[in-house]
Design a protein around this nucleic acid. Structure first.
Lengths: 108, 108
DNA sequence: GAACACTACTACGCATCGCGCAGTACTGTC
DNA sequence: GACAGTACTGCGCGATGCGTAGTAGTGTTC
């Protein structure tokens, strides 16, 4: 089944989550997300999300010329981004809990 | 925080879930969802979802004239709808589990 | 009895956002 | 030198939740 709709509003959260420890560039973030189980995430979605988060002031960015390919634009999460990550995580947990509640009444 | 994006792709599931036991009409489904914790769900979203599910053959419908207001259009889940409910529930669980995995690495 | 509130549904258009696809560009390999 | 892999950008589409307005019926309150 298609999970693209489920990603809505959550990709921001996922991207912030994979950046919370180490800086990363777009292509790398895509790989981390897929390694984490989001197999179907499109690369354009991730690049778009990174740009959106950057424009929203959640990330800083710096370019590193690579000797083994094109330059890499690294993104680093800042305080605003961390605050947003914490907030979004709580929103997600609360929402997931609510939906699970609705689904579990099925058994009743 | 705004949860409208999180609802994407899940409202179908939630609507099917609240209809799985008893038939319901639009206004009633809205109340059940809100009672279940989806406080911010818009009524137009629910009516739209009901029509979408009906057009997709997941629901049947019958009109009951009410003595205490306008007529009510009841919706009833059918076999196709139940199959979809089961399928979507699994998709949701798998997805939620994946995302929780990504988030929990935060603690590590 | 007129204004108002509640119930119940429909229709229109908007905004968000993930995605597909094309394009650019650099490196390495066969 | 054609091709694959890496890395990023931009364009336009499609799905879907939401706001708002509109229609329509019933009950309440002054």
């Amino acid at each position: 089944m298609d999970t693209s709709q489920l990603l809505k509003g959550v990709l921001d959260l996922a991207v912030l989550a994979v950046l919370r420890k180490d800086d990363g560039y777009g292509y790398d973030v895509v790989r981390r997300l897929r390694a984490g189980g989001l197999n179907d995430v499109g690369d354009a979605s991730v690049y778009g999300t990174l740009r959106r988060l950057y424009n929203a002031g959640m990330l800083t960015s710096y370019v590193v010329p690579s000797e083994e390919g094109p330059h890499r634009k690294y993104y680093s999460i800042n305080e605003t981004g961390r605050a947003r990550l914490a907030e979004s995580r709580e929103t997600w947990r609360s929402f997931a809990s609510t939906l699970n509640g609705l689904l579990e009444e099925v058994a009743a």
